[in-house]
């Protein structure tokens, strides 16, 4: 039972990371980009829980996961506020509009 839970979590971690990365590659909306980052981070957080489960230090793993959640939320907040500012100054949330800086 434990084994299957571990492997299930493992699949979930890989799945979340893959979905997050794929989303970052294809989405064009700034808000969705931030959501994709969140999915990626959730994959990592789940990874910590998994790691704690494997080496038997679940307590430590949980506190690490909590820290990651906090940091991650801060990043999301800043990302969203930048998105709001961009919407405010450029009137769009489309990634492809953000190509004034290139070459």
């Amino acid at each position: 039972m434990t084994l299957s839970l571990v492997s299930l979590t493992f699949i979930a971690v890989i799945g979340l990371l893959a979905i997050g990365l794929y989303a970052l590659l294809v989405v064009h909306n700034l808000i969705k980009v931030v959501v994709a980052l969140q999915i990626l981070a959730k994959g990592a957080i789940l990874g910590f829980i998994l790691a704690g489960r494997i080496n038997g230090q679940i307590g430590l793993a949980e506190s690490l996961a909590l820290t990651v959640i906090i940091v991650d939320t801060i990043v999301a907040v800043i990302g969203l506020s930048l998105a709001v500012q961009i919407r405010h100054h450029m009137g769009t949330l489309d990634v492809s509009a953000l190509t004034r800086l290139r070459r």
Binding site: L21, L24, L25, V26, V27, H28, V33, V95, S96, L98, T99, R100, L101, R102, R103
Partner: peptide, 17 residues
């Protein structure tokens, strides 16, 4: 080579991937 700096966010992520 300068064309590789497209400025497109998805392309930048592609670099990482």
């Amino acid at each position: 080579l300068r064309r590789t700096q497209t400025g497109l966010l998805n392309w930048n992520i592609f670099g990482i991937t």
